[in-house]
Design a protein around this nucleic acid. Structure first.
Lengths: 190, 190
DNA sequence: CAAAAGATGTGATCTGCATCACACAATTTA
DNA sequence: TAAATTGTGTGATGCAGATCACATCTTTTG
């Protein structure tokens, strides 16, 4: 799908921008494409952008001192991703973003977002609504992690995003659920 | 401290409102006080407000089908709390809010927030910034939960909020960390 | 297309935390 | 201030999930 059209429809769900305003806002974005396996953000780097996924699938993840990986998010088309902590505080990234499939993105720099928010009240409204939604989703996931066992959360995840079942290696789904791949495998027999 | 002054200084950190604008915005809030042990929101109710803590300490929590409690947040002065999922989607609350100590609050209804956001670009900016911060904090907590053992997370919590150590029963701290009170107790001997 | 790299099955063993049970201390409330 | 409620200390026991080890099977790449 056309990146501009996808973004337009995505934003239209929460904000009312005129044609001209949207065109102006869209100027802030840069299109990029990546091959499967490529890194978009590497932990330790300075970063400047957040990303809107146009096609493909990416993962946002943290790797701890023992090389154990935790997946924070699988981002499909119309999702956003970045290390927001690093982006807003200007510190180095502590999480990485990598491509699970070939991927097309629209990049928006921190400065460009902030000036678009200043220029267009509706852009600021869009990002407020978006962040509120992310916060709510994150709280829900935290609660589910504390409250439900792995099997339940696995089924919950696959129900919510059935595409993941075939698109993403089980290893990464385990890393999203915070369990070992062996444990995830054994759920089937239980 | 004077509620109005506390809110004013809190908001001034992220948004620029003139005296008149702030006065106008402040009209949206209603002051309330509660006794220790009182409920501010009870799961199952319809809700209409978010709350800014002026004095005291409150807890946001979820109780599952087995009566097990999970604490999502301890809110101290200058913190905000609500069931944002219910508030934004208009559904019934799934979490409750209760007072750990006597508490003074400023209540802001969903409608009042939304119209203030429409009226004042800077108010929308304030809430965008606030929600971004909440999202980042929530992601950090999720990661820490998956990555670190209970002892580490307990120390992390007490370092971040030393007041909690004496103000809040250990039972509730355990419910925040997602472990049993027995386990929390045994950490001291390890 | 052959070799290397990555993903998935499967067993054996170890461990952190839950759960149950009960004693005692501290704080509310009548 | 006595009784009731709520919080904390401590042992015994059980289980979900981690870790290690190794055997396929599948996909990528030279």
């Amino acid at each position: 799908m056309d990146p501009k059209q996808l973004l337009k429809e995505h934003i239209a769900k929460t904000a009312k921008l005129s044609e001209n305003e949207f065109d102006d806002f869209f100027e802030c974005f840069t299109a990029k494409s990546y091959k499967k396996g490529a890194y978009i953000i590497t932990a330790g780097e300075r970063i400047d952008c957040e990303y809107f996924v146009v096609s493909g699938c990416i993962k946002t993840f943290y790797v701890n001192d023992n090389q154990k990986m935790f997946v924070l998010q699988f981002a499909m088309p119309s999702c956003w991703a970045s290390d927001y902590s690093a982006l807003y505080s200007g510190t180095r990234a502590t999480i990485s973003i990598g491509c699970i499939t070939d991927t097309e993105l629209l990049c928006l720099s921190n400065n460009a977002r902030e000036s678009a928010c200043r220029k267009f009240h509706q852009v600021e409204h869009f990002f407020r609504t978006r962040m509120t939604g992310e916060y709510v989703a994150s709280q829900k996931r935290l609660l589910s992690t504390m409250n439900n066992d792995v099997k339940y959360r696995y089924e919950e995840l696959i129900t919510l995003f059935p595409e993941l079942y075939n698109m993403v290696p089980k290893r990464l789904i385990a890393a999203y659920l915070g369990v070992s791949r062996e444990t995830l495998y054994r759920l089937n027999n239980t």
